[in-house]
Design a protein around this nucleic acid. Sequence first.
DNA 1: CATATTTCCTATCTGATTACTCTGATGTAG
DNA 2: CTACATCAGAGTAATCAGATAGGAAATATG
Lengths: 146, 146
Amino acid sequence: MLSQKCKYALLALMALAREPSDKLLLVSEIAERENLPRKFLEAILLELNRNGLVRSRRGRGGGYALAKPADLITFGQVVRIMDGPLAPLACVSVNYYRRCDECRDEQNCEIRRVMRRVRDAIAAELDGTSLAQALAEGRPVPGMAA
Amino acid sequence: MLSQKCKYALLALMALAREPSDKLLLVSEIAERENLPRKFLEAILLELNRNGLVRSRRGRGGGYALAKPADLITFGQVVRIMDGPLAPLACVSVNYYRRCDECRDEQNCEIRRVMRRVRDAIAAELDGTSLAQALAEGRPVPGMAA
DNA sequence: CATATTTCCTATCTGATTACTCTGATGTAG
DNA sequence: CTACATCAGAGTAATCAGATAGGAAATATG
């Protein structure tokens, strides 16, 4: 399960993705729109900023915007920043690999084989979906009957 | 990420799945073979027993065996028992559904839509793989060249 | 320049969860 | 009866989740 932090990050990023790329949103605006705790959200946006997903401007007229186009930010990037590995076991993680302490023969571990497939399935979805795509799915083409 | 508990449970179940269905293994035997903390494993097997995946016999000559054939025990069952929901968000969980507190319009949540696909992908792998299958993948047909 | 605004940064807090261990009760075979 | 093994529950230390608090730094505006 994703942490609240990660979910909030995704909600905030989607809110920014809905705006024109030069429009700055205040933390408090995002918090209100998405119904999120303001202070916590502030910390989250800070982290997203440090990781280059978001850019900010301080002082009056300041706020946050996406640091790059919404089709270049994937769910996978966000989850990895906020929660770490996508993989169900560290020993099948591509970006956060770590050997299992108890493991004697990693190559022939059946559980690992299964979990690798799970990891790949998760990564395929999350790395294959950008903020822009998620947004587009939500707003189906007008005139296209349901 | 799966908990250690869940990983240990899978390791223990795979160990049992390798044995003939009537053979009882001691907790200490499993712990030694799989390199797991004995007391912790004991608690885990107890939980698997309560949930009907494993059967036990006490006293001298006792031990644990699978409660049903290895092809009827799926990874999904084990993970749900030990760690709960497979889904990345509770609001897309089939077995552990819970609404998000901050959510205003679940039907139109774009994040939810993405996470539903992730959940389905995870569930397809985990519910689609039994202990028997995992075992079979590990032991490729002899005579079949690599 | 003064001031209001807004992000940036560090620190802290509380409660829950994780990963175990300990002690003893209960059941079973010989 | 007794050695063996699971069953049961409490206990514990460390970590993490989910926040909040308070102030420093930057910036637009008058």
